Amino acid sequence: MQDALHPEYNEVTIELADGTEMTTRSTMETDTYETEIDSTNHPFYTGRRQFVDTAGRVEKFNRRYGLTDDDEESEETEEDTDE
């Protein structure tokens, strides 16, 4: 077998957003790891869901690329005249 094939497996202290700490083992090179997620704020545990506004995404796309409703209508009429 090869030497030094596997990474180091050290103890790491995990600090959650609500202030609780737990100790586990990991291949991370730090002694502590701070996370912004815990059972008090993650949607899986709280049951709160975020709904995506698809109309808002379309408007954002149009603003980003400088498209307006007039541009889309003119493209459609140009296609109709080509036939």
Results as ranks from 00 to 15, higher is better:
residue 3 D to H: 11
residue 3 D to W: 13
residue 3 D to N: 10
residue 4 A to I: 08
residue 6 H to A: 07
residue 6 H to Y: 09
residue 6 H to S: 04
residue 7 P to W: 02
residue 7 P to F: 03
residue 9 Y to F: 10
residue 9 Y to T: 01
residue 9 Y to C: 02
residue 9 Y to P: 00
residue 11 E to L: 06
residue 11 E to Y: 04
residue 12 V to K: 00
residue 12 V to E: 01
residue 13 T to C: 13
residue 13 T to H: 10
residue 15 E to M: 11
residue 16 L to D: 00
residue 17 A to V: 02
residue 18 D to M: 10
residue 19 G to I: 08
residue 20 T to W: 12
residue 20 T to L: 10
residue 20 T to I: 15
residue 21 E to T: 15
residue 21 E to G: 09
residue 22 M to R: 14
residue 22 M to L: 13
residue 23 T to L: 06
residue 26 S to L: 00
residue 26 S to K: 01
residue 27 T to K: 02
residue 27 T to G: 01
residue 27 T to L: 01
residue 28 M to C: 12
residue 28 M to K: 10
residue 30 T to G: 09
residue 30 T to F: 13
residue 32 T to P: 04
residue 33 Y to Q: 08
residue 33 Y to S: 05
residue 33 Y to N: 03
residue 34 E to F: 15
residue 34 E to L: 14
residue 36 E to S: 08
residue 37 I to T: 15
residue 37 I to W: 15
residue 38 D to H: 08
residue 38 D to S: 07
residue 39 S to N: 07
residue 39 S to W: 07
residue 39 S to I: 08
residue 41 N to M: 11
residue 42 H to C: 14
residue 42 H to E: 12
residue 44 F to C: 06
residue 44 F to I: 11
residue 45 Y to W: 06
residue 46 T to P: 01
residue 46 T to C: 09
residue 47 G to F: 08
residue 47 G to P: 05
residue 48 R to S: 14
residue 51 F to D: 11
residue 51 F to S: 05
residue 52 V to H: 10
residue 53 D to N: 14
residue 53 D to H: 08
residue 53 D to K: 09
residue 54 T to I: 06
residue 54 T to F: 12
residue 55 A to T: 13
residue 55 A to P: 04
residue 56 G to V: 05
residue 56 G to H: 10
residue 57 R to N: 11
residue 58 V to P: 00
residue 58 V to D: 02
residue 59 E to I: 12
residue 59 E to K: 13
residue 60 K to S: 14
residue 60 K to L: 13
residue 61 F to L: 11
residue 62 N to W: 08
residue 62 N to K: 14
residue 62 N to S: 09
residue 63 R to V: 05
residue 64 R to I: 03
residue 66 G to M: 04
residue 66 G to V: 05
residue 69 D to E: 12
residue 70 D to I: 01
residue 71 D to E: 05
residue 71 D to Y: 03
residue 71 D to I: 02
residue 71 D to S: 09
residue 71 D to A: 07
residue 74 S to E: 15
residue 75 E to R: 05
residue 75 E to G: 04
residue 76 E to M: 01
residue 77 T to D: 04
residue 77 T to E: 08
residue 78 E to F: 04
residue 80 D to C: 01
residue 81 T to K: 13
residue 81 T to C: 01
residue 81 T to D: 10
residue 81 T to I: 10
residue 81 T to E: 08
residue 82 D to Q: 13
residue 83 E to R: 10
